[in-house]
Amino acid sequence: MGTTRRSFIVATASAGLVAAPAAVRAQAGFPDKPIKVMVPTVAGGAAEQCLRAVAEPMRQALGQPLVFEYLTGGTGNIALQRAAQSPPDGYTLALPSAANSSNLAARPRQAFDIVGEMRPVGKIGVAAMMLTVSPALNVKTTEELIRYAKANPGKLSYASIGYGSSQHLVAEMFAAAAGIDMVHVPYRGEAAAALDMAGGRIHVAFLAGAKPLVETGKIQALATTNAENWPSMPTVPPLSQTGLPGFVYNGWNGLVAPKATPDPIVARLSAALAGALKEPKVRSDLRMIGFEPGAGTPDELGEQLRSDIANFRKIIAERNLKFPD
């Protein structure tokens, strides 16, 4: 009996010694195939444009391409869930944004737990949301918009990328601060919302990727949610300077991996992202669509997630907001 037990222990220990170097070798050779990124919005959205800006320099650093897979719906929950259920080997990532932290704050029981089930790789871009309106509304300033809304209660509609999204919560913050009523219309992404706003089918939206549409005149920018004038749109005033003092919020997007992804793999991915974000062309490309480059580090994104969730929970409680399942 003793001999059999000792043999089992030795065999088990030997198997462990064999498995450990194999795992180390796999990590050392990472990546040796394309890396899939689950994108929770339709093609052309602001977050996807940011990912495209870093994709080529990350390919050069990693030696493998990033392959985009689009899984819309559920305010990003579907894409994040798919990534979380994938093997934690670094070959499946997801592209979350503030929509995902706000959704977790709004629906803690139904939403995907981005903090508990994923680990940060790094933040790609930071954006001040823009308060934008349809040109058909024919208002040029925040003050004009507020006056119009008060004179026409309940007639203004505003877009978001879903119930409980950051666009939804920021718009509710604005309505409360301005003392106006607006009708919420959820969309599957910013691109679709902006298209309807350009066509006059929706009136108002807080958008993170509005710069190209504003510059071409398809939609009108009234203000930003940044504390100071946003570098990418310096002529657009902050809301805090247009009669709503203290109104500040910044959006973001980044990369996350399944929770059990090994540290060396996360470090490899983060280093590739951080390196890409230092390149002048990438920084220029991000600023062209209205984003400032992130640092591309896990710590930066982790702190953003914690801060977002705490702030959104406070807003929801103060406004007593309710969300459909």
Rank of each mutant, 00 (worst) to 15 (best):
A83V: 01
A83T: 03
Y91I: 04
T92K: 07
L95M: 04
N103D: 09
R107N: 14
R109P: 14
A111H: 12
F112N: 02
D113A: 07
D113G: 07
I114Y: 14
I114K: 01
V115D: 13
E117S: 13
V121S: 02
G122T: 04
K123F: 03
I124E: 06
V126M: 06
A127S: 08
A128I: 01
A128F: 12
P135A: 07
A136I: 05
L137F: 15
L137G: 00
V139K: 11
V139H: 14
T142S: 07
E143Y: 14
R147P: 01
R147W: 06
Y148L: 10
A151G: 04
P153S: 09
L156E: 03
Y163G: 04
G164H: 07
G164N: 11
H168P: 05
V170S: 04
V170K: 01
M173L: 14
M173K: 15
F174V: 01
A175S: 10
A178W: 05
M182F: 15
P186C: 11
P186W: 13
G189F: 11
E190T: 02
K211P: 00
K211Y: 00
P212D: 02
E215P: 06
T216G: 13
K218A: 04
Q220R: 05
A221S: 10
L222H: 09
A223S: 02
A227W: 15
N229L: 05
N229H: 13
